[in-house]
Structure formats: C-alpha cells, structure tokens
Design a protein around this nucleic acid. Structure first.
Lengths: 334, 334
DNA sequence: ACTACCCGCGAAACCGCTTTCACGAAGCCT
DNA sequence: AGGCTTCGTGAAAGCGGTTTCGCGGGTAGT
C-alpha cells in the first residue's frame, strides 16, 4: 500500500560515482558529458528504475511540460464530437513530444476568470484555445508572453498562430457542386454567425454564387446555429416562403440532417426535388437517408496541426497558420 | 513581452509583517493563525495580486492538484462523443474543487507503458480510467496507492470505486418495451462483447426475455462492436436468416440507426414490421427516421459522478460505486 | 507563587531537480 | 616553456512553497 520511495539524483549520483549536476546533464541530453560517465549514469538509472520527478524539474527549470487546452464552455462540448476529436489529436502530438495536456472546459469570455489566472500562473508552458465568439482572453494573455495557438480562425488579426479548416474553400466547393448539379435556387443555413467559421462558410457560398453571375436572394440566407433544431426550423421556413428552392447548403451535417428530415416530412424528395449538402462529414452524414453529400474536414489532422504548431513555437521556430484542406464527399443527397 | 515577475511568499510576508510560514498557514486555511494576522496576509495578497505557484506548492507538499483522465486509445474517441462528454463532466467537477484535468489518450493495455510511468511518477494526485477491455493497468497501479476511479464497470472485482450507467436495467427496460409492444422475435445486436457494458446490456436483454418464459434463440444474438457498420451488417444478416424478426434491440444508437436504414433498404417498415430500440439517446436518435426509441443515459452525470468519487477519495472518505439510472425514451421506432 | 501545558508563530530544513560559477586538467599558441 | 583557452566537472545556490521543531508568553492547576 505504501508507495515505494523513488530514488533521487542523490542516489543515482552515488551509484554512478558522479555528481548530481552530472546526472542532471546526462538526463537532459547535455552533450558535454564524457560518454563513459554518461553511460554510468544511464546504467544507474536503469538499475534503480529511476524516473525523474517532473514537479521538481518543473520548479527548478520553470518548464512544467504541461500545455493547456482551453475549450469554451459555450461550445456544444456535450453533443458535438468535434471538440473531443480535435483534443485527442492535440493530445497525441503533445505526448509524443513529452508534453501533457491539461484540459480546461470553462467559459472563455471572462478576461479575468480562473482560467486566465491559471494560465498566467506559469503552471503551463503554453495554451491552445478553441475560441468561437471572442478573442478577448487570448488577446489579453498575449501580453504575458505565454505561447499560444488558436484552433479556429481568430476574429481580429492577432499575430498568434492558428489552425483552421479551409471553411471558405469547403463551402465554395459544396455550393459549386449544387450549382453543377443544376440547382438554381440554393439556400444556405449558416452556423452561428458569431463564429468566424460560419462567416467563412457563408463567404464561400457567396463566392460560388457570384461566379455564376447571379446574386443570392437575401431570403435564401438564413442564420442557423449549428444545432439540429435550427436546421429543422430554417428549412421549414425556407420551404414555406420559397417553395421553389432546389438546393440547400447547410453549414454542418447536423443541420443538413435536420433539413433532410423536414424536407421529407413536407413531401419533398431529396435529392430529386431539393438537393442538400452538409459540412463536416460527421457520422450522421452516413446514417441520414439519403446519405449526405458533404464537405469532409479532417478533424484529427486539425488537432495534430495545433499540437505541431505549439511544439514548433516552444522550440522557438517561427510559425505560420495552418489551413487544412477539405474534400467534397458525394453521397446521395446531392 | 517579458512576463512581469510574480510576488513570492517573501514579498507577501514582508508586506504583511509576518513570517513566510504564517503566510503559508493562512493561504492553506490553517485555523490556528490569529485573525488579525490572517487579515493582514489577505490584504497583502490582494494588494500585490499574489497567486500561489502551484508547482512549488506541489513539490513541497507532494500534492500536484492534477488528476489524470486516461482514455484508452482503442476507444472510438474519434467518432463517439461519449468520451468527450464524460470527460467534460469530470473536468467541471474537478475544477470546481481546485483540481485540474490532465488528459491522456493512450493505449491502456500496456502495464508498463508511458502512462503507467507517468501515473507512478507522483505528478498526479489521482487517475480516472475509461477502461473497456482490460483491467491490467489499473490493477497494477493499485499497488502504488494512487487514488483511482474507473468509469465503467471493471471486469474483475477490484476494490476500486467505479461509476457506470445502469446498463443492465436499461437494456432490460428496452427489451421489455419491445415485448410490451407485442414483439415476438426480438434480436439483439450487442456492443463489443469484450466490454462489460456490452455484457451487461446483453444480460438485461436476456433477463427480460427469460421473464416471458421464453428462451431467446441463439441466432437472434449477434455480436456487434458499437460501430455503424456492425449495426448495418448484423441487421442485414439477421433479416436474411430470420425474416420473421419483429424487434431489434441494439446496444447503442449508432447500431440502431444502422439497423433502421438497412431495414428500410430491405423493404421492411419501422416500426410496423420491425421495431427498433437503441441505447444512449445520442443526437443521432433524433435524426434517424423514424426517430429512435432508446435508453437515455446521462453521460454528463456519469462524468460528474466520477469526479465526485475522486474528490471524496482524496478527502479520505470511503466511497461506493455509483450507478446512474437510465430512462426509456419512446419515439417512433418502437 | 511555582510548575505544567497549550497556543501562536518564526527559523530553518526540506522537496528534487536545474543551473551558475569556478576550478583543475588538457590543448593550443607564440 | 609560459600564458591562454577550452572542456568536463562538482559544489552550491537557488526555484517557491510546506512543515517540523522549538521558543516565549499566557493560562491553568495546586
């Protein structure tokens, strides 16, 4: 029951017949130690099953080996697998680099809340933010010099590295696909327009439209919020007001799924009467009938990119934003 | 750019005119300090905006304030929102208690892998495991005296506290519902039978069956793995072999959704010809057409229960397993 | 009034590792 | 050969808290 006492540098040093300083050097990869002595240290470490106490190490060096992943409590963490998936990608990359992930699910709006204090406390070496509505906290923290990465495109142009999906390109491709399929009256149900992702997807839609020489009717643009309910509501209203709609681009699969069910309930055939394209290529895209044509984003890759950017930053390399590509997945709905 | 230097005990002590020991006592809630002095300390803390360095604190006290959440890499972290949701529940409870969550997504099978070492290193005060296939690591770690909580029912009867959904009761209720609806030939598609949850759900199904006085035909029990694909495959095979099946209990909604789509593709009406019940009440239960009748489990509550159990354990209270209740949600599929 | 306790508090050791500093030996140059 | 670097290394000073130990003064007991 009693945890066996773990050896310290003192023991290792004695065993290897060197000083503690040398043990430290060897264990931190300092090249300047004579190979023979280094070998002796390694042997002692192996023999005694030594493991460095990271807390002590953190205190002395000022580096904790911890990276915070801050997820806004606003987010639909509870129903959307997106955030969990990104986080696991981040976590994988970090742990491959000897870093650990500290998860903070908390309202990010407060510039001076507990999260802010924690991050400023020096307990973590960096922070990755999943930000949607406001850059305030991130912006505020910039002063502290804490290495940061943002998952998602920031609202203002902070010079903080970020990773994001090519929202614009994806939405453009999705809308284009509808056009190519012969749709004339294409509506869009946007995501929460307070998020940059939703804006970018809307822009992609508009751009595709513009290229046809037409201007999208204002009535065809409705502001959803990524939820199933909003997909359902907006589709119903759209069809009631504009029965001639023949295409819907939904900013995520959940809303697209909602759209499909409503269309069917209203007696419209998908894709014969109305074609629907979603975004994400979530699992739900496959279970919806007809299966959703959608824009796939590689969520794990996004998380890995965020992790990679953080590592690079910690290494003092200069970093550029990473935009991951999307792919049009054609199924049955369009 | 330079992080402003943060005050230390030395500064606070001087400001308050007391010793560092007293500062420490006050900040750790030691009652034995004279109120006047305590007040002076608090004032100094406020005035200087002092925040305790948790790393130093951890080194000196041996308590890091960190709780690891270990998620098996085997798990479908990437597609199933379940784990992310539980984790966010855990995280909330922990942070309310001044603890932080360290996320480790890693293969848990290895008794001697990096995770094991990390957990033994004393860097965390406790660990919460999401275990599915093996208790080996947990069992091994028990010796180390690390406080642990298991999310899910362990395979063997370790005397480690755990939290779980009432899988048995849920499956029983779901199956019972099918029976009450007049189903005669009810099949089950289990989850990965290497998990205790899948076994318990199977048991619940069997129990409901037994109570009818009938014995479920072996051919009606098929071993899925919680994936959409397995729901689809097994349903197809089931119907081909037993065209008279009139009810399917699927161990999660994803497989249930797969079942519904296949049934429809094969010309069966749901629920008229075949009734389907799922498990989880995931979002997909609502988007499937017909919407799934299912067993709701409160995933956030599960996470919170895990966090609560950990806190209690750290406080030296003795803890009992927590089984959260399920609820039959009746929609259109059964 | 004298010894026996108890209580609040400061001095100092300590947690385990990192890093600076300085010293001796070895290598180089003129 | 003498003086200067360079290199490898150990001693020791932290990092910023926590905790033990013991002291001095106040209270209580007889």
């Amino acid at each position: 029951m009693t945890p066996p006492p773990r050896p310290t540098y003192t023991v290792i040093a004695k065993e290897a017949g060197v000083s503690e300083a040398t043990v430290s050097r060897v264990l931190n990869g300092d090249e300047s130690v004579h190979p023979d002595r280094a070998k002796r240290v390694h042997e002692a470490v192996d023999k005694l099953g030594y493991r460095k106490n990271r807390v002590a190490s953190a205190l002395a060096s000022g580096r904790s080996g911890l990276i915070a992943v801050v997820i806004d409590d606003d987010l639909s963490v509870f129903s959307d697998p997106f955030w969990g998936t990104v986080t696991s990608g981040v976590s994988r990359i970090l742990s491959e680099n000897g870093l650990h992930t500290v998860l903070m699910v908390s309202p990010v709006g407060l510039v001076d809340g507990g999260v802010a204090h924690y991050l400023k406390s020096g307990e973590v070496d960096g922070a990755i933010f999943f930000v949607l509505h406001s850059d305030a906290l991130v912006n505020n923290l910039k002063k502290s010099g804490l290495p940061m990465v943002i998952a998602g495109t920031p609202h203002s142009s902070l010079d903080i590295p970020f990773v994001d999906t090519d929202n614009f390109g994806g939405a453009y491709a999705g809308t284009k696909h509808l056009i190519n399929q012969g749709c004339e009256r294409i509506a869009i149900i946007t995501g929460d327009i307070g998020t940059t992702a939703a804006k970018q997807r809307l822009d992609g839609y508009l751009q595709a439209f513009r290229e046809t020489g037409r201007v999208p009717a204002k009535g065809l643009i409705c502001e959803g919020d990524y939820s199933l309910a909003s997909g359902i509501d907006h589709t119903r209203k759209l069809i009631e007001k504009h029965p001639d709609i023949d295409g819907i681009f939904a900013s995520n699969d959940l809303m697209a799924a909602g759209a499909v069910t409503v269309l069917q309930d209203m007696g419209k055939l998908v894709p014969e009467d109305v074609k629907v394209v979603g975004f994400d290529d979530a699992l739900i895209a496959q279970t919806t009938r007809p299966a959703l044509t959608t824009i796939r984003q590689d969520v794990v890759a996004l998380g890995e990119a965020a992790g990679t950017l953080m590592i690079a930053q910690l290494n003092g390399e200069d970093v550029q934003p990473i935009i991951t590509t999307t792919e049009l997945i054609i199924r049955a709905s369009a």
